[in-house]
Amino acid sequence: MSPTPVLAEVLPTLADMYDRDQLPDPEDKPCFLPDPHLIQRVCIWQGDITRLKADMIVNAANRSLLGGGGVDGAIHSAAGPDLLKECEGLGGAETGETKVTKGYDLPAKYVAHTVGPIYSKLNVERSAEQLESCYRTSLEACVAKGGETIGFSSISTGVYGYPIIEATQISLRTTRLFLQENKSITRVIFVVFSEKDKKVYEGLVPEYFPEP
């Protein structure tokens, strides 16, 4: 029996978390002004992204788009063999690029396969630009498919070695800027696997989505 899907629309938002005093005061001065509407459109959820019933989930893929370890392997396994067949026809992708497939056996309608950078201290700025592109192009892909809900895995923070704090800052900043300009995305879910990563998101989110 397949695990019960988790509906994107029922997950607690940042607004709910602020109401319950579940988010800390920002350690630094917030980067953005408070917006009571934006915090109703963002969630932090610790769980299995393959269970998320959303219009789109984002897979941290490699350049072949043919599956791998970690989240990539889990998504391919849960989606079934038809996902690999469609990916075989996409011709791979460049770092920072996103390509979309159907979700097949996943609860999500679509999968955005985005290729994060392999982190390098020798080229920090380029790595940051590529990671920003992953988040931005995935959000754009969701809009292009008529989607309203999207779940992100933590891109490049596994074997690709991107420091979790810097990667989270990029994900939050890119999402904030996008949501300010685009009203069609109603829910962005940052899906974290470990308690450690959850604490990082909870600690940083008040700088980008401060409490009104």
Score class of each variant (00 low, 15 high):
6 V>Q: 13
12 P>Q: 07
14 L>W: 01
14 L>A: 06
15 A>V: 11
22 Q>A: 08
26 P>V: 00
28 D>C: 01
30 P>N: 02
32 F>H: 02
33 L>C: 14
36 P>Q: 14
38 L>F: 01
40 Q>M: 09
43 C>I: 14
46 Q>T: 08
48 D>Q: 05
49 I>K: 14
51 R>D: 11
52 L>R: 04
57 I>D: 11
58 V>A: 01
58 V>F: 00
58 V>R: 00
60 A>L: 05
62 N>C: 03
66 L>Y: 12
68 G>E: 11
68 G>A: 09
69 G>W: 01
70 G>E: 13
71 V>R: 07
71 V>M: 08
72 D>P: 02
72 D>E: 03
74 A>D: 10
75 I>C: 07
76 H>Y: 04
77 S>Q: 15
79 A>V: 08
79 A>H: 04
84 L>G: 09
84 L>S: 11
85 K>P: 07
87 C>M: 06
87 C>H: 02
88 E>K: 15
90 L>I: 09
90 L>H: 05
91 G>L: 13
91 G>A: 12
92 G>V: 14
94 E>Y: 09
95 T>S: 05
95 T>R: 05
95 T>W: 02
96 G>L: 04
97 E>S: 10
98 T>Y: 03
99 K>T: 05
100 V>W: 02
100 V>A: 04
100 V>E: 04
100 V>C: 06
101 T>K: 11
101 T>G: 09
102 K>W: 12
103 G>D: 08
104 Y>D: 11
105 D>M: 15
109 K>Q: 15
109 K>F: 15
111 V>E: 05
112 A>S: 04
112 A>F: 01
114 T>A: 08
115 V>T: 14
115 V>C: 14
115 V>Y: 10
117 P>D: 13
118 I>P: 13
124 V>D: 11
125 E>C: 13
125 E>K: 15
127 S>N: 06
128 A>I: 12
128 A>V: 12
132 E>Y: 05
138 S>H: 00
138 S>K: 02
140 E>S: 07
142 C>S: 10
143 V>I: 13
144 A>S: 15
145 K>C: 11
146 G>N: 04
150 I>G: 07
150 I>F: 06
152 F>I: 05
161 G>Q: 04
165 I>L: 12
169 Q>W: 01
169 Q>Y: 02
170 I>R: 07
171 S>L: 00
172 L>Q: 03
173 R>V: 04
174 T>G: 06
182 N>R: 11
182 N>H: 14
185 I>V: 08
185 I>M: 04
186 T>W: 06
187 R>V: 01
188 V>I: 03
190 F>S: 09
190 F>Q: 05
195 E>R: 12
197 D>S: 07
197 D>A: 09
197 D>N: 06
198 K>R: 12
199 K>N: 14
200 V>G: 00
201 Y>F: 09
203 G>T: 01
204 L>V: 04
204 L>F: 03
